[in-house]
């Protein structure tokens, strides 16, 4: 079976697990019945909780896996993750400002705020980088991203640590969770994610050229500014959408591309879809584990990812010789 076949089967298995397993024990027959006929879903566990978080896991995992791949390809840095462009930090600050200043408590508004924050942050990062010599080199972009992230993070910490109410709202959001969203809220974000997906796929060929160094890429007729802009669009849309839906979930953006590269190689036409599948499988699997180990309380997927994902990544690094960018 091909690598993509295995990944697809893995995705189907985790999707099923996400629908059929949970902290509320519901028999598989009941779940199936509820899926086929929503009217029988009396306690709304299936359609109210499991379906949304399964869809969310699929979307967020896919988005983060792809965003991380574009990010690493654009910067040529194997440690780059979507947080590096200041996207997560911008989203976090916007959410905190919303709670602190505007006393926002609706999910829809939080979502909108995190989107705006993410987009503004990445535009600022790109602008600061573009003030320098040129965009041919990935280094100014990475430095600007790190600096802006640090600045935004400091402001966020200041606000959060000074106000108990804000801290309370922030601490739930910042862990990263797939629960508590309805399908109706997911709708608008899907458009954004689709935009990011298209940008990422259009960027695949440029990423292949950029992997040869910026001089070689230009020699091959690559327009570097356009390649950077499309890549930035992909990273911003995908990360902003993911952060808005589930909070700043780390780790997947960093690791999914590495696993993908070990599985299918460095060609971005194959690597982007592979990393997307790896991201979705990882996130869904960790979410299911979080539901099962915590009893009724559940453990947020961000926490499970940090623990399980960390261990899994060390094992992968030890076993497979990871391709160096």
């Amino acid at each position: 079976m091909t690598t993509f076949g295995v990944l697809t089967v893995a995705l189907l298995v985790t999707l099923a697990a996400s629908l059929f397993l949970g902290s509320n024990p519901v028999s598989p027959a009941t779940v199936l019945q509820a899926l086929l006929d929503p009217a029988t879903d009396t306690e709304a566990i299936v359609w109210g909780s499991r379906v949304p978080r399964t869809v969310l896991g699929l979307l967020v995992g896919t988005a983060l896996g792809m965003a991380g791949t574009v990010m690493q390809g654009q910067t040529g840095n194997p440690l780059a993750d979507p947080g590096l462009f200041g996207v997560s930090a911008g989203a976090s600050l916007a959410v905190v400002l919303g709670v602190f200043v505007l006393h926002v408590n609706s999910l829809g508004l939080t979502l909108a705020l995190s989107l705006v924050g993410a987009v503004i942050a990445s535009v600022v990062v790109f602008g600061v980088a573009a003030l320098g010599r040129d965009l041919a080199s990935p280094v100014p972009l990475a430095i600007a991203g790190t600096a802006v992230s640090a600045l935004l993070g400091a402001v966020t910490s200041f606000l959060v640590l000074n106000d108990a109410e804000t801290l309370e709202a922030y601490r739930i959001w910042v862990v990263g969770s797939l629960s508590g969203r309805s399908l109706a809220e997911v709708g608008p974000v899907v458009l954004l994610l689709a935009g990011g997906l298209v940008c990422a796929l259009v960027n695949a060929r440029s990423l292949n050229n950029l992997a040869l160094g910026s001089e070689m890429a230009r020699g091959l007729g690559e327009s570097l500014t356009r390649a950077r802009l499309v890549g930035l669009g992909a990273i911003t849309f995908l990360t902003a959408g993911a952060v808005a839906l589930a909070g700043p979930i780390g780790f997947i953006g960093l690791t999914a591309p590495h696993v993908g590269r070990a599985l299918v190689g460095g060609d971005h036409y194959r690597l982007l879809p592979a990393s997307a599948l790896v991201g979705a499988v990882t996130l869904l699997a960790c979410d299911v584990v979080g539901r099962l180990i915590g009893g009724q309380a559940e453990v947020a997927v961000g926490v499970v990812l940090a623990v399980l994902g960390g261990v899994a990544f060390v094992v992968i690094v030890r076993r497979a010789k990871l391709a160096v960018l």
């Binding site: 194997p78 292949n208 992997a211 160094g213 001089e215 070689m216 020699g219 590269r261 190689g265 460095g266």
Partner: peptide, 15 residues
């Protein structure tokens, strides 16, 4: 016109 720079980057995991 083709250019082979002095130090192109060798891409990861590429045949």
């Amino acid at each position: 016109l083709a250019v082979l720079p002095q130090r192109p980057l060798t891409p990861a995991a590429t045949s």
